[in-house]
Each structure stands twice: as structure tokens, then as C-alpha cells.
Amino acid sequence: MRGQGRGLQVYAALYLLFLYAPIILLPLFAFNSGTIIAFPLQGFTTGWFAQMWANATLRTALTNSLIIAVSASILATCLGIFAARASTRFEFPGKGGMMGFILLPMVLPEIIVAMSLLVVLLGMGVQLSILTVIVGHTLICMPYAIAILTTAFSSLDKSLEEAAYDLGETRWSAFRLITLPLVMPGIISSLLISFTISLDEFIIAFFLAGNQPTLPTYIFSQLRFPKQIPMIMALGTALVALSIVLLALGEYFRRRGNARMGGNPTGGFL
């Protein structure tokens, strides 16, 4: 028992090291004064961050990405609320099939989503822009939003809303006063996770953005130039820090929601 547990523990630790290896390297190279990404490290510098800050294209890419991520996460979460409520609260013929179809982008290779959408958009003569990326990102964020929101909605006792209705509220005010506050942690998690997915999404942005840069497409274009890589490492470090903050926030809201419902604080994302 002890021996086996010990072995597994060592393995799990090594596995975590494997998972974190790239992330540990990231700040090392971001603060390394050498221009080539290789060991041994040269010296400490914050110059790459300064260079990143001064880069105008990067700023445009960041602005675009933020606009896309905020829009897509709000749209996906709104659509997700509809779907989650429909699936947890109502029974109707064909529900399983419709829900399955909405969740399909989760298991469909992104290249196919991107390509088919691109073909149609080009065929219709639609000008590619960050708007078309928002459309695509909303589609792929929606299943994740639904997964999170369905959990939030289904842990809700159906009679809570009925009780509010019974006590004189309207259907809408019962939803607003009771359901909405109780699923709010789920909504915030959904927004954060959709935001993170959109911010990091490459393929759809790559094909649907036209000549507009987003963060991932900008990073992709710069990876070809060895000179630019230290700056990309600095950017990556900043993004990792941002992701961790957003995730910690999401987790915090999820747990607080659980605690408020008197539930137990286990489980995780997805």
C-alpha cells in the first residue's frame, strides 16, 4: 500500500513537471537578456517587456483580441443561458438531438468549422474582419458555456422559482430575483472561460480575421522570426499570468456559489 502510493505520488509529481515544463521555461526566457532561446541563460533583463509594450501591431492585436473575446464570451454566455435553461427546465420532443447539435462544435475539429465557415463567408462576399471572428468564436465558446451553465442550472431546485411565483412574483421577476442570483457564479465562470478560450483561439482567428491581427495570429506570425521570439516569450509570460488570475477568479466564484447553496466545494472546470 505505502510503496504503491509512494510510487504513484512520484509519478504524479513528474507528470505535473511535464505539464508545467513549458510554463516554467516561459519566464526564464522572457527575462533572459540573450537573443537566442537556448541554455545557458545570459543575464536578467526586462527589455523584452518594454519592447512588447512599445509594439504598435501587438497593441492592435491585443485590442482586437479583447474586443473579440469580450463580445464572444458575452454572446456565448447569453445563448448558453437560453440553452441551459431549456435543457434543465423543460421537456420537449427532440431536446436531446437539438442539444447534441448545439454542443457539436466541442467535438468537431476546429479546422473544419473554420474552413466551412470561411467558404460560406467568401461565397456570400462577406468582408472578413474581427466581426466574422466573433461569429466563429461565439459558436465554439457556446458549448463550453452551456456545459458550465447547465451544471449551475441543474443544481437549482425547480421549486425555488415556483415558490417565488407562488408568492406573487411574475415568471420574469421570479427568474430575476431567485434564479439569476443563484446561477450568477456559473454565469461569471462561463464568461471567464469563454473569454479565455476566445483569447487563445488561433485557427478560426487565423482564417476568418482577414488582415486584422489577433494575439494568437500575431504570435504565430512572429514565431517565424528568431529575433522576435524573446518578446513573444515576454508576451506569453504576461498571458499566463492573466490566465491564472482569470482562472483563479472563476474558481473563486464557482466555490462561493457552491458555498452559498450549501454544497460541497469539490469538482473543477469542465
Binding site: 420537449f92 447539435f101 466551412s116 461569429v135
Partner: peptide, 28 residues
């Protein structure tokens, strides 16, 4: 009545997926 409400609720995400996913897939 229940089914109608269910359809009304699921319509926006479903139509979105239909338009943005199903139509392009059918096109290719």
C-alpha cells in the same frame, strides 16, 4: 405549453448553431 416554452428558449442557440455551423457544413 411546456414544450412551447422549451422550444422558445432553445431557439436562439439552436438557430445560431444551425446558421453558423449546419449551413456551412452542408455547403462543404
Amino acid at each position: 405549453a411546456q414544450a412551447r416554452q422549451g422550444y422558445a428558449l432553445i431557439a436562439p442557440p439552436f438557430l445560431y448553431a444551425l446558421l453558423i455551423l449546419a449551413a456551412p457544413l452542408l455547403t462543404i
